[in-house]
Design a protein around this nucleic acid. Structure first.
Length: 503
RNA sequence: CGAGGUGUAGCGCAGUCCGGUUAGCGCAUCUGGUUUGGGACCAGAGGGUCGGGGGUUCGAAUCCCUUCACCUCGACCA
């Protein structure tokens, strides 16, 4: 096996990660054709190649939701302003970033310069473009729920939402983004709590098995939790630059929204009680996590489970006759690969040279590339290159389908393992605030003791830009769960909590 | 909203300080040819409201006024 050394040239060159990680990310998203900025401030255009990845994510998540008993529905984009003010914490959390519809008609500008808002067409009650749908959904659930026989309700919706962010970055934070939001209603505290945990586990499973991104599951601190939730559970991933990315959240909402929207049901005992709720979501931000977890200075590295196509075949030919011979052989290989469930693209276009195609598909993160030329035709071989390790070797066509299938499995495992090894090497234990300030500069997760107060948490954030990502459910270092003393105040702490600088 | 910066061809930039031929360069695009196992080469061609508006001047990408947009850093955030 041979390692490839060369430089990408000119137009499509990426800024190296070591030089400017942030710039590398921006370059990659645009040059790999995933997304681009649109004419609308803060809103992106997701391009076909990027959208194909999102569709694969959607398909798998949707399958998992349905397997756990959920159904899809759709609720309106617009929310009456009054709905948003019914749950106090919830308004507080979202009010500052809402897009508001105030009019419903335009008219020709009297001075002839295009159109203006017709002042006559002012809405009686303004509409908010949903930043999340709890309010409209709970207003609806009120009509759906009367008795314990109506419960549970296990709904999900795939939708777009708008949060008017000050500063945006492709996929990581855009004013409009795509997501799914699950909203469930239950008879009991226990059942809702269990649902919230279950969906967090679904997210964890998806992110680790499909995106090949290891996550730490845990519960958010009071300051970090969702506006209106009793508890927020989270999966936290670590990016290559040492910053954490919250990749999915699942909220136990208690009876907060039921009370705000007066959703009561007749219990089995014939009494009236408020229902218990959860909500949970993942967004196109997952695309950011995917990109920043595996990719390198040559471009995107996609896990086979999410790649729009897992294999690309590039013919190397001098004339039409040769291309025809190669194509005939490639057709056989493609048929065999497809029979094994492998997705393949054959790029026989003659407008680009092989070298250009190699670089292009590397930039786009295609897991496996097969190259076939006259030499291979003669020898009954094909050149197999894998994206994750940038190695290539010449392999016999005999059993190539099984070989490639196994290779894809190996790549999937390898990139997860690589990310896991990196993540684990970046979890540190710190006992003094002085050490904390030093270690946080190096990036990564830090497990430290905290006295549990928002004041201390705020002080740490203020002084170090680090936030509490979560109180992890699992143990990562031997004494995580052993009580100790807060690194800042010295007050008692029940267990270590996870800190990091985050996106 | 605070502090910096940038607007010139599809993209990236030079030219602006110190006003003066027809506004240049690289990449991309198109045509013809030679090529094709890691982003080809040669020859030719097309492409511009110099962000917008106003002013100064014989003359403005360049100077002045004004306005808009975008980027980076902060506050806010999935």
């Amino acid at each position: 096996m041979q390692k490839i050394h060369y430089h990408l040239k000119m137009a499509k060159e990426l800024t190296p990660r070591s030089e400017d990680y942030s710039q590398w990310y921006n370059d990659l998203v645009v040059k790999a054709d995933l997304a681009e900025n649109s004419a609308v401030r803060g809103c992106m255009v997701i391009k076909p190649y990027g959208y194909a990845i999102w569709e694969k994510m959607q398909r798998e998540l949707d399958r998992m939701f349905k397997e756990t008993g959920h159904v899809n529905a759709y609720f309106p984009l617009f929310i009456p302003k009054s709905f948003l003010s019914k749950e106090a914490d919830h308004v507080e959390g979202f009010a500052k970033e809402c897009a508001v519809v105030t009019h419903y008609r335009l008219k020709t500008n009297p001075d002839g310069s295009g159109v203006v808002v017709d002042p006559e067409a002012k809405l009686e009650e303004e509409l908010i473009v949903r930043p999340t749908s709890e309010t409209i959904i709970w207003n609806t659930y009120k009509n759906w729920i009367h008795s314990y026989r109506d419960l549970p309700i296990l709904c999900n919706q795939w939708a777009n939402v708008v949060r008017w962010e000050m500063r945006t970055r492709l996929f990581l934070r855009t004013a409009e983004f795509l997501w799914q939001e699950g909203h469930t209603a239950h008879e009991t505290y226990e059942e809702a709590e269990k649902e919230a945990q279950k969906m967090l586990n679904v997210y964890g499973e998806f992110v680790e098995n499909f995106m090949a991104v290891p996550v730490i599951k845990g519960v958010k601190s009071e300051t970090e939790r969702f506006a209106g939730a009793v508890d927020t559970y989270t999966i936290e991933a670590l990016m290559q630059d040492g910053k954490a990315l919250q990749s999915g959240t699942s909220h136990f909402l208690g009876q907060n929204f039921a009370k705000a929207f007066d959703v009561q049901y007749q219990t089995r005992e014939g009494k009236l009680d408020y229902v218990w709720a959860t909500s949970w979501g993942v967004s196109t931000r997952l695309m950011g996590a995917l990109i920043m977890s595996h990719s390198d200075d040559n471009g995107l590295v996609l896990p086979p489970n999410l790649a729009p196509f897992q294999v690309v075949i590039v013919p190397i030919f001098k004339n039409d006759e040769q291309l025809a011979q190669i194509s005939a052989k490639v057709d056989e290989i493609m048929a065999k690969l497809k029979a094994l469930g492998v997705s393949v693209k054959y790029d026989d276009s003659d407008t680009k040279k092989p070298g250009w195609k190699f670089a292009e598909y590397e930039l786009k993160g295609v897991p496996v590339r097969l190259a076939m030329g006259a030499r291979d035709l003669e020898n009954g071989t094909v050149e197999v290159a894998r994206r994750d390790t940038l190695t290539k070797e010449t392999v016999s066509l005999e059993g190539i389908d099984v070989y490639v299938k196994n290779l894809l499995d190996e790549i999937q495992k390898n990139i997860f393992q690589k990310a896991l090894t990196y993540r684990n090497s970046m979890i540190k234990k710190v006992d003094s605030y002085e050490d904390f300030k030093v270690e946080i500069e190096k990036g990564g997760f830090i497990l430290a003791h905290w006295d549990g107060t928002p004041e201390t948490e705020a002080k740490i954030k203020e002084e170090t830009k680090a936030t509490i990502r979560c109180v992890p459910f699992d143990t990562y270092l031997d004494d995580d769960k052993v009580p100790g003393k807060c690194m800042v105040t010295g007050k008692p702490s029940k267990c270590r909590v996870l800190f990091a600088r985050a996106y």
